[in-house]
């Protein structure tokens, strides 16, 4: 029987929350935004599995935003790499292998990460190795949007395009929040679409918490020839409960008992609706947190400089007519 991803996505979120609570804290917001992409990559998109750990043709995956480890644990446990009970019992504990970032001593984890900006250069190297060896595997690198301020990513973006690495896919978890606030207030990240295209990448803009759209984006990636693809997936940080959705303060957080109960109830409600056939697609409204912020973070920033380029007119996430408040189209709407 085919897996019901619409249900699974909420159960995996509950697993991640439970791991965080068991370990005494974690990067809960980014776990929730990126969970759907991790689930689809491991459950449907990639040629991987616990029986293929040493298969030279397995697809390669790098969680460059390594702090979303609790989401990654939930996915690795569900697909048989790790034991959930063991992870919950030992996460962040003394002498545990289950640390807060990817540890490649664990089965299924290719590389250690945790320092932002490392994944894409490594991914370029993996994709280059595949080309050199004539192997069919593909490489996927998941990055955060705050992480995109790291210069090493753009070094790798140049190389990926220079070498025409159509076996390489960069996935940007564009949840619009980082630890200090909205990305546009901390360090402008828009327009990601224009930036990646300028570097020579094929781009796909998608609602990263819309499973059908996300699956189509991965299919488009695999079908693209001659250049690497960047999937810019707008997501909701903390997706699953209003307690944490779109709240920068939940970047790293340990829910208290009351919050935990509410989050669990909300996730269960999502799962129940999914069981009844509902495909949940969140509304992308990134003005929620920003409206209350004292943006920009730096008093010196914000007034000067050119406005971010508007996304392409055919951007499915930010159509000019929709007036998404997160992008330049909003100013014109």
């Amino acid at each position: 029987m085919a897996e019901n991803f619409e249900t699974l996505r909420w159960r995996l979120r509950q697993d991640a929350v439970d791991i965080i609570v068991a370990g005494g804290g974690g990067h809960i917001g980014g776990d929730m935004s990126v969970m759907d992409a991790l689930m689809l990559l491991y459950g449907k998109v990639m040629n991987v599995g616990p029986d293929k750990l040493d298969d030279p043709d397995r697809d390669r995956f790098l969680l460059s935003k390594g702090h979303a480890m609790e989401a990654y644990y939930a996915v690795l446990c569900h697909y048989g790499y790790l034991d959930l009970a063991d992870v919950k019992a030992r996460f962040s504990k003394f002498e545990s292998p289950y640390i807060g970032h990817p540890n490649n001593k664990l089965p299924g984890i290719e590389m250690n990460s945790g320092s932002l900006g490392h994944g894409l250069p490594v991914g370029v190297g993996m994709a280059l190795a595949a080309k050199m060896d004539g192997r069919p595997y593909r490489t996927y690198v998941v990055m955060g949007d705050g992480e995109l301020a790291e210069g090493s990513i753009w070094e790798a973006a140049m190389a990926g395009a220079t070498y025409g690495l159509d076996n390489l896919c960069a996935v940007v978890d564009r949840n619009h929040l980082q630890i200090s606030g909205n990305t546009e207030d901390v360090m402008r990240a828009d327009s990601q679409e224009a930036r990646w295209q300028a570097f020579g990448w094929h781009t796909v803009c998608v609602n990263g918490n819309d499973l059908a759209a996300l699956e189509a984006a991965f299919a488009e990636t695999a079908a693209t020839e001659g250049q690497p693809t960047a999937i810019i997936m707008d997501t909701v940080k903390g997706l699953g409960s209003p307690v944490m959705e779109n709240k920068a303060g939940w970047h790293h957080h340990l829910p208290n008992d009351e919050e935990y109960a509410q989050i669990s109830a909300d996730l269960a409600a999502h799962a129940k609706a999914a069981e009844q056939g509902e495909a949940y697609v969140p509304e992308l409204d990134f003005s929620v947190e920003r409206a209350g912020a004292t943006a920009p973070v730096s008093a010196l920033a914000g007034g000067a400089g050119a406005a971010a380029p508007a996304p392409a007119a055919d951007c499915p996430v930010h159509p000019a007519t929709a007036g998404c408040p997160a992008c330049a189209n909003a100013k014109e709407a």
């Binding site: 030279p56 390669r60 290719e110 590389m111 900006g117 490392h118 894409l120 250069p121 490594v122 991914g123 370029v124 190297g125 993996m126 994709a127 280059l128 190795a129 595949a130 050199m132 060896d133 490489t139 210069g151 090493s152 070094e155 790798a156 140049m158 190389a159 220079t162």
Partner: peptide, 25 residues
């Protein structure tokens, strides 16, 4: 076919090398 130019980008050069090494190079 066994030479990779990273450009003036040492971080990328070493990161790429690590990725290649992880794949047997």
């Amino acid at each position: 076919a066994q030479a990779v130019e990273a450009g003036i980008a040492e971080q990328d050069a070493v990161g790429m090398a690590a990725g290649m090494a992880a794949c047997g190079k």
